[in-house]
Design a binder for these strands. Structure first.
Length: 415
RNA sequence: GCGACCGUAGCUCAGUUGGUUAGAGCGCUGGUUUGUGGUACCAGAGGUCGGGGGUUCGAGACCCCUCGGUCGCCCCA
């Protein structure tokens, strides 16, 4: 039989194992724990949605929709898309399930997302996010609650060091439109000094020029009109309430007047938790208020706010995760003790101990193999010169459950 | 879509200005040693040097193409 060439994985996908997987799982379980503390309900949503869900809500002209979506026709001829973000799918579910009855609705989700992009550090074609939203709440208190939860999550993950919360407001629709118009005028006047990329942004997404990485753009961007000059009274009050709430909760933040969102539906609060520890991918968690999105999907005007964070990026920063450690290792140092080792190991597992058995390979090398995985307790079953022996060794002096392991061991052999 | 760098055993890498049968460490398998002991030694398995073409008496080393990886730009978490 001819050997075929083993198929390669799809570009930008990852197979997680060992430490990578442990870190990932730690982020998710911490998130699940923290979101419950804040009374957020979990959500399990489809990975595939009708293409219109994203095309309509994100805007046809955005990069995500125009060139980054994994879209295909199913057998019935419908255009299906692998979700590139959570928010649009959540908004769709909110409308099609009649969840207005639950408003204001505090929900979270996590899972894989797909974007056809060039992979680089902390960025993949199949990537994973945790996501939190409050739908149907117009009050700044919702923004604050979400931000405080994000802050606590980062704290519990042990990565608050070196991560800062950057905060901005985009104002309400009128403020934002006026600001945008002023920016277009300003940048058009200075188009001779703008980078090539920013000239393209001027057409598509002028706000983005503000956070351009190009040094040529920095100077002009710095002197550009500020959103503060265009904020309505209500918008100012809203932002003031958000910052006051954060201060009351003791959450540190810094104003970044150049912080914007790529998508058009964002209003008012925009925020990012950023770090310099991830190369070019500085944003660890980002989000904002999107009062226009649900309307874009054909629903009633519904205020909402939310954030998302890349699990891979968080996992790279985390250092307080703990590997699954073996509590009890059972070694059969002689072939005649193997069956007994199985029953002893099973006894420990059923009693809730993380136990491992060493009953294969060279009997002489099993003890060393067992010791290498650094179990808290190592049990050896041997048969030498016709004499059966069994011993229990405590390798980790700090292990808390010694007593339970030992008494189970004694009752196994004494009865 | 664009740019830079990189592809040699399962893993981490050596491999001299191109020169004979391509190496090491770790891991794996077996053996000896040790016998409350993560020791030491021996042996074995495992490589079309990413793939294709070219230059050359001779290419893992040089050139071209291609595929893959990494990082960056765009955009974004």
């Amino acid at each position: 039989m001819a050997k075929i060439q083993t198929p390669q994985p799809v570009r930008g996908t990852q197979d997680m194992f060992g430490e990578t997987e442990e870190r990932f799982a730690h982020v998710v379980s911490t998130f699940e724990r923290v979101r419950r503390l804040y009374g957020f309900k979990g959500l399990q949503l489809p990975v595939i949605e009708p293409t219109a869900v994203f095309a309509r809500s994100l805007g046809e002209a955005t990069d995500v929709v125009s060139k980054e979506m994994y879209s295909f026709e199913d057998r019935g001829g419908d255009s299906i898309t692998l979700r590139p973000e959570f928010t649009a799918g959540i908004a769709r579910a909110y409308l099609t399930n009649g969840w207005q009855q639950h408003a204001p609705m505090k929900v979270t989700a996590h899972g894989p997302l797909f974007r056809y992009e060039r992979p680089q550090k902390g960025r993949y074609r199949q990537f994973h996010q945790i996501d939190a939203e409050i739908i149907g709440a117009a009050e700044p208190a919702a923004d604050v609650e979400l931000l405080v939860m994000a802050d606590q999550l980062l704290y519990e993950l042990g990565i608050k060091e070196g991560v800062t919360l950057e905060l901005n407001t985009l104002g309400d629709a009128e403020s934002r439109d006026a600001w945008r118009a002023a920016l277009v005028v300003y940048f058009t006047d200075h188009r001779d000094v703008l980078s090539e990329d920013s000239l393209a942004r001027l057409e598509k997404n002028p706000l983005r020029i503000l956070d351009s990485k190009d040094p040529d753009d920095r100077g002009v961007a710095h002197a550009a009109p500020k959103i503060d000059e265009f904020l309505s009274g209500e918008a100012q009050d809203f932002f003031g309430a958000v910052t006051a709430g954060l201060d009351a909760a003791g959450v540190a933040w810094t104003r970044n007047a150049k912080l914007v969102r790529g998508l058009d539906y964002y209003r008012h609060t925009a925020f990012e938790f950023t770090t310099d520890r991830l190369g070019a991918q500085g944003t660890v968690l980002g989000g904002g208020r999107y009062d226009g999105l649900i309307e874009n999907l054909g629903g009633p005007a519904t205020p909402a706010v939310g954030w998302a964070a890349g699990i891979e990026r968080l996992a790279m920063l985390v250092d307080n995760w703990f590997p699954v450690r073996t509590e009890v290792a059972v070694v059969a140092e002689h072939s005649e003790r193997e069956v007994e080792a199985v029953s002893l190991t099973t006894m420990y597992r059923r009693a809730g101990f993380q136990a491992e058995q060493f009953i294969t390979g060279s009997p002489r090398k099993r003890y060393d193999r067992a010791k290498k995985i650094e179990p808290a307790i190592l049990i050896s079953l041997d048969l030498r010169d016709g004499v059966r022996s069994h011993s229990l060794n405590l390798l980790d002096q700090g292990y808390e459950r010694v007593g339970d392991v030992t008494s189970a061991f004694d009752s196994f052999y004494i009865g």
